[in-house]
Design a protein around this nucleic acid. Structure first.
Length: 115
DNA sequence: ATGTTGACCCCAG
DNA sequence: CCTGGGGCCAACA
């Protein structure tokens, strides 16, 4: 049986994997798409667990300001930025350039929540 | 059980 | 830029 917790984590991973190449989203956007069931902090926790459990493009997930708050959790000091720049995303001063244009909103792109 | 922390978010001063 | 408040929930000591 699948508990709500596992279900939520799986959904977070699911949405994270759906982020298109060269696009980014925020923790809050994912949480909102999932009905804000456990708030944005849990998305961060899911990402924290993802780097050891599953293979998730966590570098495409930043906070609502487009700030790379989780870059210190990657192996290299600037690995997260390197991965983003590899996808054509410009990063400057720990922040994504044209974040509004590159922002991928699950609730808008995938439609409303299917709960 | 309690207190603290955290890859968050919103508001106010 | 800074600090403070509140909310949210899980992990940890």
């Amino acid at each position: 049986m699948v508990t709500e917790n596992q279900n939520f984590f799986q959904k977070v991973y699911e949405v994270a994997r759906l982020i298109p190449f060269g696009r980014v989203t925020s923790y809050g956007a994912i949480a909102k798409y999932l009905g804000a069931a456990r708030s944005a902090r849990m998305v961060g926790w899911a990402m924290n667990a993802s780097h050891t459990m599953e293979d998730i493009p966590a570098h495409r997930v930043v906070n609502r300001k487009g700030l790379l708050t989780g870059k210190h959790h990657f192996d290299g000091t600037n690995l997260m930025q390197q991965l983003l720049e590899n996808e054509g995303i410009q990063v400057q001063e720990h922040q994504i350039i044209d974040f509004e244009k590159l922002f991928w909103d699950p609730t808008r792109e995938l439609g409303e929540y299917y709960q």
